[in-house]
């Protein structure tokens, strides 16, 4: 018996969300009295760094079959390693890639899948874990009815546990058997930006900004903080900002360390996607804006004055 963590890469590099999954897998393994292993596909990074997060050994799968993401091929390779090490629990991160992989993997290895996991297991037999549901408006404890389990971690919900140590890395070859063809014709990536669900700090703005031309100050604040940018739904509906920035019930769900909401009223559907954030700062000219009820810190004021001042103060703070 053992634990297997699927470690994702981003342009060949190990993803930050994967360190969180690795840490989770290592903690779970120690509770089960066993070891945690990892599998990474098509990585250019040295995977021995996963040792710092408690991974004993990483199986690094290379080769032409894995150069591009292909959910069925990836799942086969993961299932192959899982079988080799007799994994009873698999851990991965609930990113877009994770969600392409997890349900297929569950069927392939006949496992229970629990997604949106936000805490270490309450129990290990039967496996019982807390997961987020109702778009952040509630939690559910799920009990597994299966021998083999896959846990998909809500990105950023738990963070990493880091120590010292180096993991082993073993390169393996796997030739997938699937005859499902996926012909990728185009990949359109926003370069250099942290994917929104993984960002630790998110600066977000709404209709209160009045025009797409006013986003310069939002981007400057985000840059000063090393944050990603987001927006409310009407803003993306009006094409002021790309749809990929839309957070909320019908957009992306995020739970960063810090969420700064500027000129956003705080409608229930917006809150559904952001209320998992550790700390929420609201900047709004209307003291009655509902968002203040969900905020940790609030500034009642005009965004056009407050935001540049805040950017300045952050820069000063960072310079110290």
């Amino acid at each position: 018996m053992s634990v297997l963590v699927y470690v994702e890469t981003w342009e060949g590099k190990l993803k930050k969300a994967s360190y969180e999954a690795a840490s989770y897998g290592a903690r779970l393994a120690s509770r089960l009295g066993t070891d945690a292993y990892a599998i990474v596909l098509n990585a250019s990074d040295d995977a021995s760094v996963l040792g710092k997060y408690g991974i004993k050994k990483t199986f690094s799968v290379k080769g032409e079959h894995f150069q591009h993401f292909h959910n069925y091929k990836y799942v086969e390779a993961i299932a192959h390693v899982a079988e080799q090490i007799q994994a009873k629990a698999l851990v991965l991160s609930g990113t877009f890639t994770g969600k392409m992989v997890a349900p297929l993997l569950a069927v392939k290895i006949n496992a229970a899948l629990i997604t949106n996991v936000v805490s270490d297991p309450q129990e290990v037999t039967p496996l019982t874990v807390k997961r987020s549901a109702f778009s952040n408006k509630g939690f559910v404890y799920y009990e597994s009815q299966s021998e083999v389990n896959i846990l998909s971690i809500l990105p950023n919900a738990l963070g990493v546990s880091e120590s010292t140590g180096q993991g082993e890395v073993e390169e393996i070859v796997h030739t997938p058997e699937t005859n499902i063809e996926i012909q990728i014709v185009e990949i359109d990536k926003v370069k250099g930006k942290v994917p929104l669900p993984e960002a630790e700090i998110v600066v977000s703005a709404g209709r209160g900004l009045k025009s797409p031309d006013n986003w310069g100050m939002i981007e400057e604040l985000a840059e000063a903080l090393g944050a990603s940018t987001a927006c409310s739904k009407p803003v993306s509906d009006m094409h002021w900002r790309p749809h990929s920035e839309h957070v909320g019930q019908t957009g992306i769900t995020i739970n960063p360390q810090l969420y700064i909401a500027i000129g956003i009223s705080g409608a229930i559907q917006h809150l559904a996607g952001v209320s998992g954030s550790k700390t929420i700062v609201v900047i709004n000219s209307d003291p009655e804006a509902p968002f203040f009820k969900a905020a940790d810190y609030g500034v009642v004021g005009d965004a056009f004055k407050v935001v540049p001042a805040l950017t300045e103060a952050i820069r000063k703070f960072k310079a110290q």
Binding site: V185, E186, K189
Partner: peptide, 9 residues
Amino acid sequence: IDGGKEKSI
């Protein structure tokens, strides 16, 4: 996809 879009057949 994380941070973008992918088109495939």
